[in-house]
Every structure is written in C-alpha cells, then in structure tokens.
Simulated assay, not measured.
Amino acid sequence: MNPLVAQNGDVILCVNISKLYNSKERGSIYEVTRKYWHIADDNLSRITHVAGVFQGKVVVVYVKPSWYRTENPEWPNRWEFTHQNDEGDLHSPYLGKSIRMYGPTRYVE
C-alpha cells in the first residue's frame, strides 16, 4: 500500500475512525469523521485536509473543513467541523493511502 504523502503544501489531519467506522452510533462516515477532536487552537488554521483513517488506510478526505468548538458537554474543549459535501472528496489523491509508517503522528505535511 502506498504511503500518504502531502502535496502542494497541504497539511492533513489524520483522524482514526476505526472504532466507530462500522458502528451505527453516529449514522454516517461523515459524522464519525467530523467530531470530537482535541486540536490545539493554533493548528486549526493550518489544516487543509482531514483524512478519516480506518485500520491505517485513508477512507475519506474532507478539503478545507470549517472548524468550530463543540457544544456537546460530554466532549469539552473539543473541535468538530462542517463540510459542504458529506461524502468528501471522492477524487482525492490521498484516498487509499497508508499512514502506518507515521505511528501516532496525526499531521502529515
């Protein structure tokens, strides 16, 4: 499997969605991917892409997400995003790429 390598100055936040990917708890891959992430405030403006990762492989990509602090009291000080396309970027060059070589690192630049 080819490794995930950022292109053209992209900053990709990789989020592990493996625990909820097949769950009906949140209803869709979009809902699983977009919520509740602990991100340093100064990193939010740098993120150009969010990659949902299932078992080490990128399965969904959202370009230029709009971030806001969650209002859910169960997840204080966490962030979630909105995106105009729930399906994500179906033509992203990052789809299907592996992040296994990065270990716990979540940002790929």
Rank of each mutant, 00 (worst) to 15 (best):
N22Y: 14
K57R: 15
E31P: 00
G27Q: 09
M1E: 10
Y30K: 07
L13M: 13
G56F: 03
P104Y: 14
Y102K: 00
E71L: 09
G88H: 10
P76E: 00
H91R: 15
S28L: 09
D89V: 06
G103E: 03
I99N: 00
N2V: 10
R100G: 08
V32L: 04
Y30I: 11
N22E: 12
Y36N: 09
P93C: 04
E74F: 06
S66A: 03
R100Y: 06
E71R: 09
D10I: 01
W79N: 08
L90E: 13
S92F: 04
H83E: 04
G96M: 09
G103H: 05
D10H: 01
E80P: 00
N72S: 10
Y21Q: 06
P65A: 06
Q84I: 10
E25W: 13
P93D: 02
W75C: 06
P65Y: 09
R46Y: 11
E71K: 12
G96V: 04
R26Q: 09
D42I: 14
H38Y: 14
D41I: 10
L20N: 10
V63M: 08
L44W: 11
N16A: 06
E25N: 08
S23N: 05
G27L: 07
S45G: 14
L95G: 10
A40Q: 14
S23E: 07
P93A: 05
I12G: 01
S45T: 15
N72L: 11
Y68N: 08
S18V: 04
N22V: 07
R78W: 07
P3D: 10
Y36H: 15
W37K: 06
R106T: 06
Y62S: 09
R26L: 15
S18L: 03
V50R: 02
P76T: 02
Y68R: 12
Y94F: 11
N72G: 05
N8Q: 15
N77I: 05
W67S: 05
L90F: 01
T48Y: 04
V32R: 00
Q84N: 05
V5S: 01
Y36S: 02
V53T: 14
H49E: 04
S23I: 09
Y68D: 12
T70C: 01
G96Q: 08
T82C: 02
N72C: 11
Y94A: 02
E71C: 08
S45M: 11
V15W: 06
F81G: 02
S45A: 15
R26G: 03
I17M: 12
R106L: 04
S98C: 01
R46K: 15
F81A: 03
L20D: 13
I99A: 00
V50T: 01
L90N: 06
S18P: 02
E87M: 08
P73L: 14
S66F: 10
S92H: 02
H49F: 00
E109L: 14
G56K: 04
Y21D: 05
T33C: 15
K35Q: 12
